[in-house]
Write a protein that binds this DNA or RNA. Structure first.
Lengths: 124, 124
DNA sequence: TTAACACATGTTTATCTGTTCATATGTATA
DNA sequence: TATACATATGAACAGATAAACATGTGTTAA
């Protein structure tokens, strides 16, 4: 393509198809593997349910057993247990048994940090 | 109930029903309004889809137009547009028009912070 | 070992959500 | 103004998912 037939954008980027190729290619290289981004989405999906968020927030600085959570949030025991199962498999909560009860708490500081970041965004 | 009929747990917590009442009451007071936690869940729900996460990550430090994103991630223009609509209404991205194209970018540092926190948790 | 309690799990159902396809809106250019 | 390009939007369908209900497992104490 002769230079006199190029528009300003094409000239400024060296004549690539539409002047965005370079940027698209660069972003493509920076992008993490799909698998990682899939896992990241799965993580946020767990936070993305109001029942689970309520449970997580209740445990923000308290260890709670299943029955505590059910009474506190007015949920069925079954529902709480199902949600805790999801939180466990995502490594967001840990637990310990004490007699007949099982006490749950947040697994690490990341969980608190993620919730706090979200709260900041919401409270605007 | 006479003290000699109480178990150790009941005595140590002053004789409340099952020794967890105090904690449950305290947590209940600390818990934010349902509406706030609902909004928080809604926010994370937006991050909880692999297509949207890919789009957000691609914009981590690049402004991109709809067509860029579609080519980059091998998605249909319609799909990208639908997802950007959701990201816009959640205030996660901002945009500007330049001629026929519309350039999208992350709305603020919170968005980057939330993604980074999530990444740290996933990369373990 | 039986009963009572605390929790987990399987299944079903109603609802929600992402994609696709078709079409509409908005912008630049000949 | 006609055409092409870039993006947005509406509708419909398929897959995902949370809640409810019933039942199973594990623990304690009589």
């Amino acid at each position: 393509m002769p230079a006199e037939h190029m528009n300003r954008e094409q000239i400024s980027n060296g004549g690539s198809k539409n002047g965005r190729e370079d940027i698209v290619d660069r972003v493509m290289e920076q992008q993490p593997d799909d698998e990682i981004l899939y896992d990241l989405a799965e993580l946020f999906k767990v936070f993305g349910d109001s029942t689970r968020i309520k449970i997580l927030y209740a445990m923000f600085d308290n260890e709670l057993c299943v029955n505590d959570i059910a009474r506190l949030l007015n949920l069925s025991q079954s529902s709480v247990s199902h949600q805790l199962r999801i939180l466990k498999s995502s490594k967001l909560v840990k637990f310990r048994r004490d007699g007949k009860s099982i006490y749950y708490s947040l697994d690490d500081e990341h969980v608190r940090a993620i919730i706090s970041m979200g709260m900041e965004h919401v409270e605007e």
